[in-house]
């Protein structure tokens, strides 16, 4: 079976996955910056170099994410909701509910037994409940985002945020810092606020087990723990949660190639 590339050009980071026979063989990630077209090209070149292959070895590339339309060498784009569904079920076939915490939004997706989407909800008009909120608070606390999760686990008195709004939340975090609250307690409080918002999305779309968490937010152990506490059960978290949509994109392309679907010309905006 030929190699397939899935690309997820997100607002924070861009990810690529090369798969063969449904199995990822190479991962790569770059900050997206502001030029999606350039980052897509660079991501492709570095991915190919990392895997030790050339562009001609790739039978198809499919793009998803915020900047999917900028992947000039891809024949088609795919919805990130479908990619997330396909990506998760390739790893956890039993999953029926996905909590996907990305930088600019969080979405909760319901699946049927075949792994097809039967409902979804997105909090896209608001940063509350998304990774962006964590970015903002990490900046206030002058810590690296990747340290936010482990640090929060050391909290013994989480700050209670009175707002779910990221903008007001930033002001509140500054106030708590000036009052002497510890970074650990502030971060734990932020995670609880995020978990609260996420749980309302889960409730709205309707929970069915098993439930997985994906996206960059799932790299944050503190957030995962808070969501688990709020929902009252353990979440399935893939090893590389931030690559799930890219994996899903590659799966969709691979299925298309297997089915003999004729692909549109590169540069077209066909949505799969």
């Amino acid at each position: 079976m030929a190699l397939i590339m899935g690309m997820d050009i997100g607002s924070g980071t861009s990810k690529s996955v090369i798969v063969r026979d449904g199995k990822p063989v190479a991962y790569h990630l770059l900050p997206s910056g502001v030029d999606y077209r350039a980052v897509a090209q660079k991501l492709r070149e570095e991915s190919l170099a990392k895997a030790g292959i050339s562009a001609s070895d790739i039978a198809d590339t499919i793009a998803t994410g915020h900047g999917a339309g900028n992947v000039a060498f891809s024949g088609h784009q795919a919805s990130d909701i479908l990619c997330c569904a396909r990506g998760i079920t390739s790893i956890f076939p039993s999953v029926r509910t996905i909590i996907d915490v990305q930088r600019t939004f969080t979405q909760v997706i319901r699946l049927n037994a075949a792994g097809h989407v039967i409902n979804f909800i997105i909090n896209e008009k608001c940063a509350t409940g998304s990774g962006c909120f964590l970015d903002i608070i990490s900046h206030v606390l002058q810590i690296d985002l990747k340290d936010a999760g482990p640090l929060s686990l050391g909290s013994d008195n989480p700050v209670v945020f009175t707002t779910g709004c990221a903008v007001f939340g930033e002001s509140e975090a500054i106030s708590r810092v000036s009052e002497g609250a510890s970074r650990e307690d502030i971060l734990a409080g932020v995670h609880q606020a995020l978990a609260s918002k996420i749980s309302t999305l889960v409730e709205r779309v309707g929970l069915e087990m098993d439930c997985a968490m994906s996206g960059g937010g799932a790299l944050n152990v503190g957030l995962v723990e808070s969501v688990e506490k709020k929902l009252g059960f353990k979440l399935l978290v893939p090893e590389q949660p931030q690559f799930i949509n890219a994996i899903g994109a590659a799966m969709m392309a691979e299925n298309g190639v297997k089915a003999g679907v004729s692909l549109p010309e590169p540069g077209s905006t066909k949505i799969t």
């Binding site: 795919a78 919805s79 909701i81 479908l82 097809h116 989407v117 039967i118 949505i271 799969t272």
Partner: peptide, 18 residues
């Protein structure tokens, strides 16, 4: 517009299911 079109594809999957 683009986001609506991307979600429309997902709705098709939902409509097939329902």
């Amino acid at each position: 517009y683009a986001d609506t079109m991307r979600k429309a594809v997902v709705l098709e999957e939902m409509m097939d299911h329902y």
